[in-house]
Amino acid sequence: MPVEVLEKGLELTDFYEPTRRQYNANRLLKYMESMVNSNEFKSIGLFHVDLFIPILTFIFGQAIFNGNTGIASVYRLKNELYGMLRDENLLFERFVKVIIHELGHTFGLIHCHVPTCVMRPGTYVEDIDQKKHHLCPKCREEFEINKI
């Protein structure tokens, strides 16, 4: 599947919530959705800021279920945020998993409890490290049906 990477600068001040010192992921997702071209199959916005949704303290990413847009942030995936040594390779691996996970939701995949499946919910970086960057057979089957 061809992937097009667009590097765009986006003024994030409008999405900043000073009381939480975080960025509102719901509004960012809506903005992303409004910016998507009709000829794009699925789009995912990649950010480096701390994302939140009103009910949760933070999120790694989120997507429109069965939609065509998602967002993901690298912010909470950094080792140094948890007092560990900086590890660029690990950070990249984590980010890839979060991106695939969110894209999975746009294909109608729900959370899976197979420990290595990329659709397994992860609320800590350790959860993300435990899973692989691919789908388990059951999610793969679901994906094949939904992708059409």
């Binding site: 939480r20 939140f52 009103p54 009910i55 949760l56 303290t57 999120i59 919910p121 609320t123």
Partner: peptide, 9 residues
């Protein structure tokens, strides 16, 4: 509110 994602799950 706001919840820790893990607590809610």
């Amino acid at each position: 509110k706001p919840f820790d994602p893990d607590d809610l799950s």
